[in-house]
C-alpha cells in the first residue's frame, strides 16, 4: 500500500528480513495517520543501519554523525518550535557514542520523539557488541562473550525524570503503532526503544526471542505511577513492553522555558540595531 511519506528512487541498503523494514513502515504509517505535514517534520539521524531510516522517508532530514542526532535535533527545535522533530538511530548510536547527549537531552525535556532501534548489536560495522548486548553474547571482538552489564535505557531515562518512556517490539506491529502514536502526541521528550532483530549479525535476539522474552503491559498497568515504572524498568527477562511511564501533567518543555510560548522561529528574528547602538554607547 502506498504511503504519503514513501520516498521515490531510493536504494534501500538493509538485508532482507531486517527488523528495520518493519520500523520504517511503522513510522511512515504513524506520520500519515497523525496527518503530520511533510515539510514541518524533520527527522535527524546519526550513523548506523537504523540511522538510515530517514533517508527512506519523504520529509526534511538531517543525516549527521555517529551519536550526534540529539544535539542537532535540540538545535533545530530551539531554532523553530513549530517543527515536529524526531531523532532516530540505533542503540550504539544513541546509547554508546551519543550516551552523554542521551542523558542531557532528557534533562532538558526538549519536545522531540526519540526513536531507538535496539537490535543489541552493531549492525553497520558487522556485528560487535552494543551497549545493550546481553551478557555472554559472542562476537568477533567480544570473543569470550560480553561481560559488561547491559545498558538499561528505560531505567536511565526514568532516573532523569523523562516524561514519556516506552518500549515496543517490532514483532508486535499493532501494539507498536499505538505506543508510537502516543509518543508523537506527547508534549516533551519521548523515548521509544524498539526491539529490532538484526537477522545478519545477531542470531540470538531474533523475532522469536523478542516475542518469547517480552510481554505487553495491559490495561491494569497505570503508566502515571512513577515508582511502579521505575520497578518495571528493571525487569529484564521477560521485558515489559508498552508505555512504562507517562507524566500526566506534562512539564514545561525546554524550548518554552528558553524562549517562551509561541516564540518566533529564529530565521525571522533580527535585532533592533538602534538598541545595539544604545547598549554600545553605554560603555
Amino acid at each position: 500500500m502506498s504511503n504519503l511519506f514513501d520516498k521515490r528512487d531510493v536504494d534501500v541498503a538493509w538485508c532482507p528480513g531486517c527488523g528495520n523494514f518493519g520500523i520504517l513502515k511503522l513510522v511512515k504509517e504513524v506520520l500519515e495517520e497523525l496527518e503530520i505535514k511533510k515539510n514541518s517534520l524533520v527527522n535527524v539521524s546519526g550513523i548506523g543501519q537504523a540511522a538510515k531510516t530517514p533517508y527512506y522517508i519523504d520529509t526534511n532530514m538531517f543525516g549527521v554523525l555517529h551519536g550526534r542526532a540529539l544535539p542537532v535535533a535540540t538545535g533545530i527545535k530551539l531554532s523553530n518550535e513549530n517543527l515536529c522533530v524526531v531523532a532516530e538511530g540505533g542503540d550504539g548510536d544513541m546509547y554508546g557514542e551519543g550516551g552523554n547527549h542521551f542523558i542531557h537531552t532528557i534533562r532538558r525535556n526538549i519536545d522531540i520523539v526519540h526513536i531507538v532501534h535496539n537490535n543489541m548489536v552493531y549492525g553497520l560495522t558487522k556485528g560487535q557488541a552494543s551497549p545493550t548486548s546481553q551478557k555472554g553474547f559472542v562476537t568477533g571482538v567480544q570473543v569470550d562473550g560480553v561481560i559488561n552489564e547491559p545498558f538499561n535505557p528505560l531505567a536511565v531515562a526514568l532516573s532523569l525524570k523523562a516524561g514519556f518512556v516506552s518500549r515496543i517490539n517490532i514483532g508486535n506491529i499493532k501494539h507498536a503503532k499505538e505506543v508510537l502514536k502516543e509518543a508523537f502526541l506527547y508534549k516533551g521528550y519521548a523515548l521509544v526503544d524498539i526491539l529490532q532483530p538484526c537477522v545478519t549479525f545477531n542470531k540470538i535476539n531474533t523475532y522469536d526471542w523478542f516475542s518469547e522474552n517480552s510481554y505487553v503491559l495491559d490495561d491494569s498497568y497505570d503508566a502515571s505511577d512513577f515508582e511502579q515504572a521505575v520497578k518495571k524498568s528493571f525487569e529484564t527477562i521477560p521485558m515489559p513492553i508498552g508505555v512504562l511511564y507517562k507524566n500526566k501533567n506534562s512539564a514545561v518543555t525546554f524550548e518554552e522555558a528558553k524562549r517562551g510560548r509561541d516564540a518566533k522561529p529564529l530565521h525571522s528574528v533580527t535585532h533592533d540595531m538602534a538598541k545595539i547602538q544604545r547598549l554600545f554607547e553605554s560603555y
Binding site: 524533520v42 535527524v44 538531517f62 549527521v64 554523525l65 550526534r68 544535539p71 542537532v72 535535533a73 535540540t74 538545535g75 533545530i76 527545535k77 530551539l78 531554532s79 523553530n80 517543527l83 552523554n100 547527549h101 542531557h104 522561529p265 529564529l266 530565521h267 525571522s268 528574528v269
Partner: peptide, 17 residues
C-alpha cells in the same frame, strides 16, 4: 561536541548560531 552540533541544528532550521 554538543555545542557545535546544536549550532549546526540551529542553522539548519534558520538560526544564526
Amino acid at each position: 561536541i554538543a555545542s557545535l552540533h546544536m549550532v549546526l541544528g540551529g542553522w539548519y532550521a534558520g538560526a544564526r548560531a
